[in-house]
Design a binder for these strands. Sequence first.
DNA 1: GTCTATAGAAGGATAGAC
DNA 2: GTCTATCCTTCTATAGAC
Lengths: 214, 214
Amino acid sequence: MPTPDDTTAGAPDVLPGADAYGPVQRRLLVSAVRCFAANGFHGTTTRDIAGGAGLSPAALYVHFPSKELALYEIVRLGHRHAYDILVAARADGPSGPGERLAALVDAYTRFHAQWHVLARVCQYDLGALRPEHYEEVLRTRHETNEIFRVAVAAGVDDGTFDPGLDVRRVARALISLAIDLVRWYRPDGPETPEQLGAFTAQLALRLVARPGGR
Amino acid sequence: MPTPDDTTAGAPDVLPGADAYGPVQRRLLVSAVRCFAANGFHGTTTRDIAGGAGLSPAALYVHFPSKELALYEIVRLGHRHAYDILVAARADGPSGPGERLAALVDAYTRFHAQWHVLARVCQYDLGALRPEHYEEVLRTRHETNEIFRVAVAAGVDDGTFDPGLDVRRVARALISLAIDLVRWYRPDGPETPEQLGAFTAQLALRLVARPGGR
DNA sequence: GTCTATAGAAGGATAGAC
DNA sequence: GTCTATCCTTCTATAGAC
């Protein structure tokens, strides 16, 4: 669906929901995401960002009041998109706690693989946000994590999962499995996002399974 | 064992094996680890590092030829220490594949929690290393990961673990569980490194268990 | 080995022409 | 909205006194 042509009009492969921006803003955000992912916020200059979008250094400030606000826009977009994907996965079709949890882990893992450039920025550069922006992002993260905790708790409560599970810790582990891949995932590797999602979902079901059950 | 007194002589709580350095180098490295962990390599100035050690900006260059080499020293120390801990855990006592894998995951998790400030730098700031230093660190990481792959394979081969396991992917998942905690672990939280290690080791055994077995 | 002082380069952000 | 030019700050690293 997305074309790699980010010079003209295509929605680039590092920015979901890029349609919400004008073409120049979009090019700047795409350039910023790539720069931040490669060198971190503090390792990226405003000249890098503008240059990557084919603009002069000053042009950045026509579209964003500061480098930090460009980062905030990116991080907000990424977190919002991840949240939306989980909500959609949760609503998808009627199913029991196992299927539902597997769908969530699958979707969350696929998200981090498919948008790994953006996801990397969302995980590694949070500390560069100003305190008020950081707090706002943390709120979204909390809601996202809560989806997993509720999904694990549902299976524990109705007896589908191991009743002895520590819900918060298990949910945290599932989130770790999905997120940590931004540290090592490369799109030219042997695994597709779909394969990674399916495998991680399998692991999730192993983690919550009843001891003797199958 | 370590005292929080890093002004005079104590081995500080962010630098294992600090005895290998002189007192001033040690103070500089401790300051650098804390700064890098808090703000990243590019977000840290040489003044921050020197100031944190109670020295003038120029003093850093008496002990390290550049900021990057101070980072390299830190990252090398952290990776070496993690590797040593795994080798020690692997050698500890006679046991089957399950006990051995649990011991590895336990030790690796405890390491990342106990030395979370250092571990954070080792995970987040690798990209700031010069290429030749980065390559060297990658070699150590490969050896570390190999320990987990061998431990998983041993249990698969002798039938203790699920024979259908994908060894590389499962080992990678176990490593993810241990490493990802540097992203969220805080020492003032409700869990001790020991509790985290024990819990993650439990999860590891669930991941490798035979489908029907207990 | 530590300091003060500073060189020399690069960074974030702005001014003003077009 | 984009450009060139530049302000002013901050940065890494060095010079030279003590």
